[in-house]
Computed example of a mutant assay.
Amino acid sequence: MSWFDTVVYSAEAVGPWKMVSFLELRKAAAMEGLSPAEAEIYCLENGYVPSRYIRSMGTLGPDGQLRLLSSCAAVIGCGGLGGLVGDLLARAGVGRLVFVDGDVFDETNLNRQLLATEELLGKSKARTAAARAMEINGAVEAEGRQCRFDSFTAEGILEGVDLAVDCLDSLTSRRVLFAECASRGIPLVSGAIAGFWGQVGVVLPGDETLTGYLAGESDTGVETETGNPPFTPALVAALECAQAVKLLTGKGTVLAEQLLWIDLADDEFTRLRLR
Score class of each variant (00 low, 15 high):
residue 152 F to L: 14
residue 67 R to G: 09
residue 72 C to P: 11
residue 225 E to F: 04
residue 236 V to F: 01
residue 114 L to R: 03
residue 274 L to H: 01
residue 88 L to D: 07
residue 133 A to Q: 11
residue 32 E to C: 11
residue 261 W to N: 08
residue 4 F to I: 15
residue 258 Q to R: 11
residue 144 G to H: 11
residue 126 A to T: 07
residue 192 A to T: 15
residue 57 M to I: 00
residue 144 G to E: 09
residue 131 A to Y: 08
residue 264 L to F: 02
residue 138 G to N: 09
residue 235 L to I: 15
residue 164 A to C: 07
residue 109 N to Q: 10
residue 243 Q to I: 00
residue 27 K to E: 14
residue 47 G to Q: 12
residue 76 I to H: 13
residue 245 V to N: 01
residue 114 L to T: 04
residue 239 L to C: 06
residue 241 C to L: 06
residue 117 T to H: 15
residue 222 V to K: 02
residue 41 I to P: 04
residue 210 L to R: 00
residue 7 V to M: 12
residue 207 D to V: 01
residue 198 G to Y: 01
residue 49 V to Q: 09
residue 73 A to M: 08
residue 243 Q to S: 08
residue 250 G to T: 04
residue 58 G to P: 12
residue 189 V to P: 05
residue 165 V to N: 07
residue 175 R to E: 11
residue 150 D to L: 06
residue 51 S to N: 01
residue 158 L to E: 07
residue 66 L to F: 13
residue 7 V to D: 04
residue 232 T to S: 06
residue 188 L to H: 08
residue 85 V to T: 13
residue 12 E to K: 12
residue 49 V to F: 14
residue 54 I to Q: 05
residue 26 R to C: 02
residue 264 L to W: 04
residue 125 K to G: 09
residue 230 P to C: 06
residue 65 Q to Y: 09
residue 169 D to C: 03
residue 69 L to Y: 08
residue 190 S to Q: 03
residue 47 G to C: 06
residue 84 L to A: 11
residue 80 G to F: 10
residue 175 R to A: 14
residue 90 A to I: 03
residue 258 Q to A: 13
residue 37 A to D: 05
residue 185 G to W: 14
residue 246 K to E: 10
residue 27 K to T: 14
residue 82 G to I: 00
residue 234 A to V: 04
residue 122 G to H: 00
residue 90 A to R: 06
residue 57 M to Q: 01
residue 267 D to A: 12
residue 50 P to T: 02
residue 49 V to A: 10
residue 238 A to D: 01
residue 202 V to H: 02
residue 257 E to I: 01
residue 270 T to H: 09
residue 61 G to V: 03
residue 210 L to K: 09
residue 257 E to W: 01
residue 75 V to Q: 06
residue 109 N to C: 11
residue 118 E to V: 12
residue 80 G to R: 07
residue 115 L to W: 01
residue 186 I to G: 07
residue 45 E to N: 07
residue 179 A to P: 01
residue 249 T to F: 14
residue 154 A to D: 10
residue 110 L to P: 13
residue 86 G to R: 00
residue 60 L to F: 12
residue 40 E to H: 04
residue 180 E to P: 06
residue 179 A to M: 01
residue 172 T to Q: 00
residue 135 E to S: 06
residue 110 L to G: 15
residue 139 A to D: 13
residue 223 E to D: 13
residue 188 L to V: 05
residue 129 A to C: 13
